[in-house]
């Protein structure tokens, strides 16, 4: 098989969509936070916490959907912490975000060691299984990729639709977008900017945690340390790349994942001439490149990272 033929194999596209799924959840989560005006650098740690919370719920005997719910709740709790410090207290979103990442990660590792003190190899759970949709999954090339995935992948796509619909078609979405562009206008409508922003960060963080849980409950079947491996930071780049729009961000995530799946296959083809680390670097380098490409015409939400205090201008 040569490098070009890879693109025409169904298994490549199945892998691409699978790799994209956690990124889609987390990117949507970050997008919601940023549209409301809050940069959430807690994303990496929140994904770690979600990955563990979901997996452990199932390991302890809960069912898979309960696991997803627990992960989302854990994410929302860290979101509440982040939002309390950055929104009403107006603390630096950079410092608090890094702090939340450090806290969520270390709490997760502490809890893991506490509940599983003796294990050497990570225990496994029975993860989500692919759920082929009859008929559609038979479509050549893309059928399997889009219609023979786990329920959590379908949920990722549904999430994009819901986020887009809420942001652009509902009063709540209007308030969220306005809180990120012109918070005084929101306050003038009698809506609390603090409330909107805190709510957005909590919902966004819940989605990030579900993104993390996808890794332990759908892509793999166990939790191990450092498994998020920078995916959170990549999602922050994807939000910028998608110019803060759900549809574009979804496209960016799939494009990115396709590239990631492609480099893995290319690595196998290269037969070890190029060091494998070069391939592993590509996703991170690509994220930086994407940021540079879009930076000049990026239109940030105008109030992003600008704290809002009622009655001040």
């Amino acid at each position: 098989m040569d490098a070009f033929e890879i693109l025409f194999t169904a298994s490549f596209w199945v892998a691409a969509i699978r790799i994209a799924s956690p990124l889609i959840f987390a990117t949507m989560g970050e997008l919601i936070c940023e549209r409301a005006g809050v940069l959430n650098l807690g994303i990496e740690g929140i994904m770690t916490a979600g990955a563990f919370a979901g997996w452990f719920t199932v390991y302890a005997g809960g069912d898979l959907w309960t696991g997803v719910l627990v992960a989302a709740l854990a994410g929302a709790m860290f979101g509440l912490l982040h939002a309390t410090l950055t929104v009403p207290l107006s603390l630096s979103q950079h410092v608090v975000g890094i702090g939340v990442t450090l806290l969520a990660t270390s709490l997760t590792y502490f809890t893991y060691r506490l509940v599983l003190p003796e294990v050497t190899s990570p225990p496994k759970i029975e993860p989500f299984q692919p759920l082929p949709i009859p008929g559609l999954s038979q479509i050549p090339l893309f059928g399997e990729a889009l219609f023979s995935q786990t329920p959590l992948t379908y949920l990722a796509f549904v999430t994009v639709a819901v986020v887009a619909w809420v942001l652009y078609r509902t009063p709540v979405g209007l308030a969220v977008r306005a809180a990120g562009e012109n918070p005084s206008a929101v306050e003038a409508q009698g809506i609390s900017v603090t409330g909107i922003r805190m709510g957005a960060v909590m919902v966004g963080s819940a989605l990030m945690a579900v993104g993390g849980a996808f890794l332990t409950m759908s892509a793999f079947n166990s939790f191990f340390f450092e498994m998020i491996n920078g995916r959170g930071w990549i999602c922050i780049a994807l939000v910028v790349f998608g110019s803060w729009r759900p549809g574009k961000a979804l496209l960016g995530a799939i494009l990115f994942a396709a590239f990631d799946a492609y480099q893995v296959r290319l690595q196998q083809l290269s037969g070890g001439i190029v060091p494998y680390q070069v391939f592993l670097m590509m996703p991170y380098a690509l994220s930086i490149l994407a940021l540079i490409l879009v930076a000049r015409r990026a239109t940030y939400p105008k109030a992003l990272m600008i704290p809002y205090q009622k009655g001040e201008r």
Partner: peptide, 24 residues
């Protein structure tokens, strides 16, 4: 003691957050 050493990382991360509140 049977307390995982990751407690140190938690303490360090927590102190970052309590410190920014204290500075505020």
């Amino acid at each position: 003691a049977k307390v995982p050493s990751y407690i140190a990382d938690v303490m360090v991360a927590t102190s970052l957050l309590t410190m920014v509140v204290a500075i505020l």
